[in-house]
């Protein structure tokens, strides 16, 4: 029964969440958090048959920074659109062709699209070739697709599935 956790990163994340939840850094809480992380990953291992690999951790950090900055900018833009000119919006559906293959990378991309510049991902095509995206105000749909592919998809591809 005393096996190392099958997903060490998840175990550490769970321990960190426990520490945040209890809002303390006492040694006992750290031990309890690590114990919980170890036990939960062990019991839940059969639900996660594959372990996603992060190949470029530094790039991932940079990507998170870019996304956080984009979230603030995008929110200012959306707020301005809602307050100033709700009648002059140019909403559009665009198809983003996907180069990503893995579940994790696609879902991270979809979440990123939802949080950033005036777009919500709507549906993944059953064959995973396209992601249908709704844009709040798209003056240039092709440019939007190019931006998404360059700014978000390319780094994700390097992080999760390098060739």
């Amino acid at each position: 029964m005393l096996r190392p956790p099958p997903h060490p990163l998840v175990a550490l994340t769970l321990a960190a969440v426990w520490l945040l939840l209890s809002n303390s850094l006492a040694p006992g809480q750290i031990a309890l958090g690590l114990l919980l992380g170890w036990a939960i990953t062990l019991f839940a291992a059969r639900f996660w048959p594959t372990t996603p690999r992060i190949h470029r951790p530094l790039l991932l950090l940079r990507f998170i920074g870019v996304v956080l900055a984009d979230i603030v900018v995008a929110n200012l833009a959306v707020a301005r659109l809602i307050v100033v000119s709700p009648a002059r919006l140019r909403p559009a559906f665009v198809q983003v062709p996907l180069a990503l293959k893995s579940d994790l990378a696609i879902s991270v991309l979809a979440n990123t699209i939802c949080l950033t510049p005036g777009t919500v991902s709507s549906r993944l095509a059953p064959d995973r070739a396209h992601l249908l995206v709704h844009a709040l105000d798209a003056a240039d749909p092709d440019g939007l697709v190019a931006t998404i592919k360059r700014r978000y998809e390319a780094p994700l591809r390097e992080i999760f599935e390098p060739c």
Partner: peptide, 20 residues
Amino acid sequence: SLGLVRLRDFYTRLHGPTKA
């Protein structure tokens, strides 16, 4: 919440609450 009221179709309304 203002976006929820002011915008005119469901898909654009979705943008207000999820982001702002």
